[in-house]
Amino acid sequence: MIEVLKSGIYSSLQDLGRFGHRSSGVPLSGAMDLQSASWANHLVGNREMASVLEFTASGPVLKFMDEAYIAITGADFKPKVNGQQVHSNSLLKVEKGAVLSFTAPSIGLRGYLAIAGGFITEKVLGSTSFYNSITRQAQLTKGDLLRYDVQKKAPSGRIRTHFKPIGNGSNLFVDKGPEFNKLSSFFQDNLFITRFVVSSKSSRMAYVLEHKKRFYVEEIVTSAVQPGTVQLTPGGNVIVLMRDAQTTGGYGRILQLTEDSINLLAQKRAGEIITFKLNET
């Protein structure tokens, strides 16, 4: 077991997502930066859909009650075991009684911890991803105990040699959304030369992008939306829906991020600049 000594700003268990229930209004959820989450699982020899611990901005402090093989990926949180710095992006053995802590990263926002054997946690509607009103808790709190299947032997033969850092560019690649053509051509062109600033109001549900333009598109009759959908409100706010987004919405869907760009945006923090680039493929 792992005891959560400090929860950090926002920590939750996440997997690839809760598929098959969007027509019941159930959000997809899943790790915000799926690439980093999948890689953490790969490093410890887990299957891609195993649950990982996602933490945000400031990491948690965790006490291991049993030994464990773990991997930490995502933003550079400078992990420490009993105060000694250890490597991210590699397989680590943690001894019984060890305390794992983190330092706020200088680049990136979210970190991932995978554990060999996987976390043992409630599966609701086919997924272990935390979500309010679906799972018992939405985020970890101090004192929580995380169970896992203790492995006595190191996972073998799964170590990938090439390192996959989190993306550090500011270009988000997009396809035109269903309502793109309802924008005036002036706004269409402007979308791709505007430098947007990530707002502090961003969350697992949506990122708000600030700008000084006056983009306009009318509201639509409510229709389905998905993670990566860029919405424009009648007031001109640009919102990028993320993993916990609702399944339907009434704002114009002007762009759609590629999967890689969702992962990239998930690592952006308030104040960072992004621009949209039209996907040429």
Binding site: F19, R22, S23, V221, S223, A224, T248
Partner: peptide, 12 residues
């Protein structure tokens, strides 16, 4: 097909 989501006069 993974799943479908109907809405008013549209579906994804």
């Amino acid at each position: 097909i993974q799943e479908t989501v109907p809405a008013y006069h549209s579906a994804v």
